[in-house]
């Protein structure tokens, strides 16, 4: 180290200035140049990957993060609200206990095919189970007159409506009546006989197990019966023995004779 003027205080900045003095020797730069030239040539020769332009364009887009993000959020919100509204339209019905009226979408579908003549017959058909409301929607395209369909529906369902006749409801009633007639046996089976599904399931080893259990139960019952009878006979024997003992005691322990009296111990 060279001699330098005396310095008494050393601050953090002075210490960090030492780091500036950490410099590579001159020959290091020759190697550096050589390495750099080789790398540059390799970079020129080496083909760029096919995704490089995409990365570049993505990097350019990253400048517009805020507007792009805001647009995306708005678009998603718009789509969600729109979907939600559509779903609402599909699910609109009157949740009055078990009874339900026709969904609005069904009404929209069948609207065109309803005439005023349908009103009288179908008026009475309004009370249907909620399950029916979820049936697939199809326009009614039957050759049969609508008044007949409606009267048949009223005959099958048999309940009287208090609701006002709306064309959509009328066509719905007709449709329900048709479907009810077609699927009545199946509906009866589903609605009238609710069966617990798990109770119908038989485990694989169930029959064998029950057979074994039957045998064990018989043995157990047999064993208990014999035990009880054994116990009863023992009690009886004991009881008899005691009686006999007392009786014999009376008879045999006391030996009473004309000329003598003997007592046996």
């Amino acid at each position: 180290m060279k001699e330098s003027p005396r310095k008494t205080t050393v601050s953090l900045e002075d210490l960090l200035r030492l780091k500036r003095a950490e410099q590579p020797p001159v020959e290091f730069w020759d190697q550096f140049e050589q390495g750099l030239r080789t790398k540059r040539l390799a970079a020129i020769v080496e083909p760029r990957p096919w995704w490089a332009p995409f990365i570049r364009s993505a990097a350019r887009l990253s400048r517009y993060q805020l507007p792009v993000g805001a647009t995306a959020v708005l678009a998603i919100t718009f789509l969600t609200v729109r979907e939600y509204r559509t779903a609402d339209l599909i699910q609109v019905y009157e949740p009055a206990g078990i009874e339900a009226t026709a969904p609005a979408s069904m009404a929209a579908v069948a609207k065109g095919s309803v005439t005023a003549a349908d009103a009288a017959g179908a008026r009475s058909v309004a009370s249907v189970p909620m399950v029916l409301a979820e049936m697939p929607v199809r326009p009614v395209l039957s050759a049969e007159p609508r008044s007949e369909q409606a009267s048949r529906a009223s005959a099958m369902v048999g309940s009287v409506s208090h609701l006002a006749p709306v064309p959509s409801e009328l066509s719905m009633a007709t449709y329900i009546a048709e479907n009810l007639a077609k699927n009545k046996p199946e509906l009866d089976r589903v609605l009238d006989r609710p069966v617990e599904p798990l109770s119908q399931v038989n485990m694989p080893g169930e029959s064998r197990r029950s057979r074994l259990l039957e045998g064990t139960a018989w043995l157990a019952s047999a064993g208990s019966a014999s035990d009880s009878s054994l116990r009863t006979s023992e009690q009886a024997t004991r009881h008899l023995n005691e009686r006999r003992l007392t009786e014999s005691d009376v008879i045999s322990r006391l030996d009473v004779g004309g000329d003598h009296l003997g007592v046996k111990f």
């Binding site: 180290m1 330098s4 003027p5 310095k7 008494t8 050393v10 200035r17 030492l18 003095a21 950490e22």
Partner: peptide, 30 residues
Amino acid sequence: FEKINEDDKVSAEVIAALTDDTGADRETFA
């Protein structure tokens, strides 16, 4: 690490200030 450049004036001053009190070898201390 790179070696500290001995010709650098500031670093020489700092090292001198730090080694004068202790009397340690400057190169080792550096």
